[in-house]
Computed example of a mutant assay.
Amino acid sequence: MPAEVQTRTAADDQAASWIARLGTRTIALATIQEFAKWREDPANAEAYRRAEQLWSRTGELADDPDIQAALAQAQGRRPRRFSVKQIATGSLTTALAASLAAGAFFWQIRDTYATEVGEQRSLQLADGSRVRLDTASKIRVRFTDGERRIELAEGQAFFEVAHNPARPFVVMTTNASVTAVGTVFEVRRVGSETRVVLVSGAVDVAQAATPSAPQRLLPNQQTAIKAGKAKVSAVNADTATSWTTGELTFVDTPLAEAVAEVNRYLAAPIILDAPAAANTPINGVFRSGDRTAFVSAAAHLFNLKAIREADGKVRLVSSRNNAQG
């Protein structure tokens, strides 16, 4: 038996399996929680670190017997030699195989991650950075040896960036780019607008449509970019990013705006059919996805009546208008 197989541990095989499972296009929250619990064991964490290092050795990947054995066991196959063509069929190694075929000996990842309505998802990228995707969001990841690039295609994401000045971490939207090194921040797409909130560190925000110099944000600042214009303002970063803990925090937020935010997490949304209350501010903290609590509070605070419709939606109307009808 080859020496490599004899020295492998159960943790090594489990780590290889986790790399394959976490490399798929969609991952259930239960899977992420299971992975986090597994990685709490120091031996497992070290095995996962070794596995990530092996994956990063792109030039040696096709011929590495240790990887061959780990993949074979994780995927329920007998150990055998993989060709570049065969590797290309794996969900995790598509980008690696392309690099090998082109003769490019550098680490490159290209993958897409997305969430459904009401779903959130936590990811750890290959460089150690962490991403939390909000409801109905999508990112595309492209890492090379010189740059870490994320495209936010839809929705909102929260980034905790691993420090590496030699490989800038750049988040792109259709009208802006955000460059950070060792920074915590969020980026959100709202129609044609890009919003950036900085929690800690510093980011440089550049507009795609203008050649002007990037704008440096400081902690507890946000910028909103739309139609070639950027507006910087102060913000409570903890409040703005409370969604990352499963909460929606409203501070003097117009009711119509709060309803729109709550609806982002609902398959059957709330319809605000009370024009007089639309601009009235609401304050409070609600669990994301908890429609019942929000509807109950809004109805009580603003003298509204909640009407459940046949398709599952809830309509908020003025109690006075309803009584007159």
Rank of each mutant, 00 (worst) to 15 (best):
G228K: 09
A176W: 03
A234S: 13
R195H: 03
V235K: 01
P219S: 06
D204K: 11
K229R: 15
V205M: 12
G191L: 03
S177Y: 05
L217N: 03
K229E: 15
R195E: 04
A234W: 04
I225A: 09
S233E: 13
T194L: 04
R189I: 05
Q222N: 09
V199M: 02
N175L: 07
S192G: 14
R188N: 05
T223F: 02
N220T: 03
V178H: 08
S212G: 12
S177C: 11
P211F: 07
P214S: 11
V232F: 01
G191D: 09
T210S: 14
P211S: 11
Q207A: 08
V184I: 12
A202C: 07
T194V: 05
K229G: 09
A227G: 06
N175D: 14
R188K: 13
G228D: 13
M172E: 13
V235G: 02
S212W: 14
L198K: 01
V196Q: 00
K231M: 09
V203Q: 04
T183A: 07
V190F: 10
V197F: 00
V203K: 01
A213W: 08
S200K: 08
T179V: 13
S177R: 15
P214E: 01
A209V: 07
E193P: 03
T223H: 08
V203R: 02
S233G: 04
V184Q: 12
N236L: 08
S177K: 08
S192C: 07
